[in-house]
Design a protein around this nucleic acid. Sequence first.
DNA 1: CTGAAAGCGCTTACAG
DNA 2: CTGAAAGCGCTTACAG
Lengths: 329, 329
Amino acid sequence: MNQAKIYDIAGAAGVSLATVSRVLNHPEKVKESTRNKVLRIIKEKGYKPNANARGLASRRSTTVAIVVPRISQASVAEMIQGIDDSAKKFGYTLRLFINSNPKQEQELWGEVIASSVDGILLMNDEMTQETAKLLQYTPVPVLFVNAIPKSDKYGSVCIDYQESAYKITKKMIERGYKSIMFVGTEHKYTVNDYKLNGYVKAMEEAHLPTNIVFSSGDVSINEKHFTQIMENKLPEVALFVRDSMAISFMNIAVKKGHRVPEELQIIGFQNTKYAELSNPKLTCVETPIYEIGNRAMAYLTELMRETNAQEKPKHILVDYKVIWRESTK
Amino acid sequence: MNQAKIYDIAGAAGVSLATVSRVLNHPEKVKESTRNKVLRIIKEKGYKPNANARGLASRRSTTVAIVVPRISQASVAEMIQGIDDSAKKFGYTLRLFINSNPKQEQELWGEVIASSVDGILLMNDEMTQETAKLLQYTPVPVLFVNAIPKSDKYGSVCIDYQESAYKITKKMIERGYKSIMFVGTEHKYTVNDYKLNGYVKAMEEAHLPTNIVFSSGDVSINEKHFTQIMENKLPEVALFVRDSMAISFMNIAVKKGHRVPEELQIIGFQNTKYAELSNPKLTCVETPIYEIGNRAMAYLTELMRETNAQEKPKHILVDYKVIWRESTK
DNA sequence: CTGAAAGCGCTTACAG
DNA sequence: CTGAAAGCGCTTACAG
């Protein structure tokens, strides 16, 4: 009934602890017949090695830390799914750290390291100087997930935000629209800066004036702000860094009697569930958030395996696509 | 540069390892001057005890497992926030387990136990017989979060789903509506059964005929189904177990030219961000999901502290309220 | 109030 | 291919 120990398995199988351990960690080093016997008993007794002891002895925990910012969108849930599926495949387990308070970043980081994970998946898009410094002393690989590191020392997995914004803007220009507004977040996120750059590039190439607005992420603040914006002439197209902002804007426009997409076309970013639940349904650039998590975890296992210190970290770009729905013509 | 060990701290402070350990775990047992000296050095060196070693030696890991089902709504993110805030306060760290595949439930459970957590927060609303059995042998406290255990042996934290559905239904009856539809999920969730019970009770008390529909959680399937339902006479009020279903239904109704709330009133459950991003905005019963997570973690720490095996586990009910918005009169 | 010592449950060189 | 033994970094009775 009580959790079996490696000792019990060894006893029952008539071998030493070392052999049981080998069966689990280096099965190829054990004679097949011995291995099978041990395996059978392990199964019978439902033996699971104690993760703490294992971690302590091997200095590898087969555990990975996920560090997410507090104010993360609901979509992290999906990303974590992607991470977890990949983690299961490679035999890793997840430890979750939420970066609530920038002031406690140091402390959090200390905990992450003390937890002796084998690798770290970082979702923080923005990072204080201090964290950046702490990051340097991390004894395990760190990978940015759907976020862009400012230093070249870390790898990342995300979509090409700049290109995606550039292309969608260009597409709308090609369709003959000249008045295209870009709505970003007041709070600075590196990924949103990239989107902005893409938009600006497309507009400048076409010699069109840019129209850039920054707004809050908070719905009720947005609504006031957006209502103000609508006092002025409406753009033909509005591109938002987030679905939720796009929808909020669209709802206000519709209530004011503007017709979407006839008079005003709206494009979001991410393709959250909101996009399908809006009326009209939202066209957006889809960020394959599950895929990003999945790929990130897979790449992290590579990084954790590498004995040779470091090759240049890779920046993996995951494919994205545009989902055309009712909010565009 | 390298992580300091307890050994280094002891050396630098001129005390034994035992004393350093005591400073961390039972500070009251150490003379103040000694304690302060040790504390200072710990800080200087940025010492963090190795979590694995600590867990192994003390048989307590100050780690809690969160077990969530794969198909969990995005709102788990918020619940986990609540859990984490509480966990930080009590010095616990989080380990995340996602129950992807019912067939692997046994294995998952094995991992949970092997990870030697001190307690388990279970978000699985439904549970196979097998899990129920495994649950019995869990050496640590288990608590259901926003889910209802079928056995009386486990505590839980959620809102009174039955009462909330009963009250909102009754409220609409009192306002003079007789034709009230209830839309649940095809998939059986205990919490949704409770909502159904509450609805039925209110309708029966008022001698009104019930009108119950079960639908998928998938948006595109819902849409077909809902479109069908609208062939028939529309109810005056429709109550949905989920915001997203409510909004999906509402959008279809609006597109068909029905006026919300004039002809059709819609009520959701949960108060996700969707509710504020719909047009018209959705009235719903708010499930204080953050609060539920927060309270659950707090209660779990109590359970973990208790040396005396078990008193009767508590079922904590968190307050909820109804958020009246535009989808009701 | 403090230290020496055993032990938590594993893994991994090192021999054989 | 296998076993005996050391060691991973802590905690906690047990003495004093």
